[in-house]
Simulated assay, not measured.
Amino acid sequence: MHYQAPTRLSAAILDWAGTVVDFGSFAPTRIFVEAFAQFDIELSLDEARGPMGMGKWDHIRTLCDQPAVAERYQRRFGRAPTDADVTAIYERFMPLQIAKVGEHSALIPGALETIAALRERGLRIGSCSGYPLAVMGKVVELAAAKGYSPDHVVATDEVPKGRPSPAQALANVIALGLDDVAACVKVDDTEPGILEGRAAGMWTVALRFSGNFLGLTWDEYQALPAERRTAERTRIDGLFAGSRPHYLIDTIAELPAVIDHINARLARGESPQAC
């Protein structure tokens, strides 16, 4: 038997918040601020956004390891935050997230049209998120009511290790019965999500403006003057540089053209691992 490289994409593995739903990725970040506040620990929205894309327990652990946050915790409780403290914050975070995720569940403009275009090109639609299963159930239900139902969903607590591990992306590959990771593209608005796709051996597409790095609502984004958008593209491209996405686009609405470009590269014998 001989290895035959794929000549076309067979699947897109899409992130959720900041990629397909919740323009600006507000649902998880604002709840982190509220959860920490219940322990009398001040957390800014910018600080909450820092580790976005990781599983939520790991996200809280990373926040607690930040020197400024650890210092506030030390002043409040007289000690550095332990894993037990992280779990306590996480247990406050979960019911808040489940209760409020619906407030930021709108589909990102262009998402449904893009997904329809991908299906027309023969792609299966997988998905994964930093949300745990208890939250994902609500997110999936709300998205289905708005017309979006991917072929498979993997929550962060359904695999042994969350992002930037490739486990969630690869769980989609297995569940969808796909033959080659090089025929898959991972689309995400965070560095851990792009690293996940890279580690899985997939093509990767980073989203600049719909997610965590810009952190604006759709209306705020639409109101940005052209020169500000240009400056933000440069800034955000720099933030993504270390994770080495194959492509950077503004929002998911631009994805079909990227799919066509990747298919042309695959037809020429190129692979994501070599780029």
Rank of each mutant, 00 (worst) to 15 (best):
Q66Y: 11
A70R: 12
R72L: 11
R72V: 06
Q74K: 14
F77T: 03
F77H: 08
R79S: 12
R79M: 09
T82W: 07
D85R: 11
D85H: 13
T87S: 07
T87I: 14
A88H: 09
E91P: 03
F93G: 02
L96A: 11
Q97D: 04
Q97M: 15
A99H: 11
V101C: 10
V101F: 08
H104C: 11
I108D: 01
P109F: 08
G110S: 09
G110Q: 10
E113H: 09
T114S: 14
A116I: 05
A117G: 04
E120P: 03
G122V: 11
G122M: 12
L123N: 04
R124T: 04
G126K: 05
S127R: 04
Y131W: 00
L133M: 06
A134M: 08
A134W: 00
A134Y: 02
M136Y: 00
M136D: 00
M136P: 01
G137E: 08
K138V: 15
K138C: 04
V140F: 05
V140T: 07
E141K: 15
A144C: 08
A145H: 13
A145I: 01
K146E: 12
Y148F: 15
Y148C: 04
S149H: 11
D151E: 10
H152E: 10
H152R: 13
A155R: 00
T156M: 02
T156H: 01
E158Y: 06
K161Y: 01
G162V: 08
G162M: 05
P164T: 10
P166Y: 06
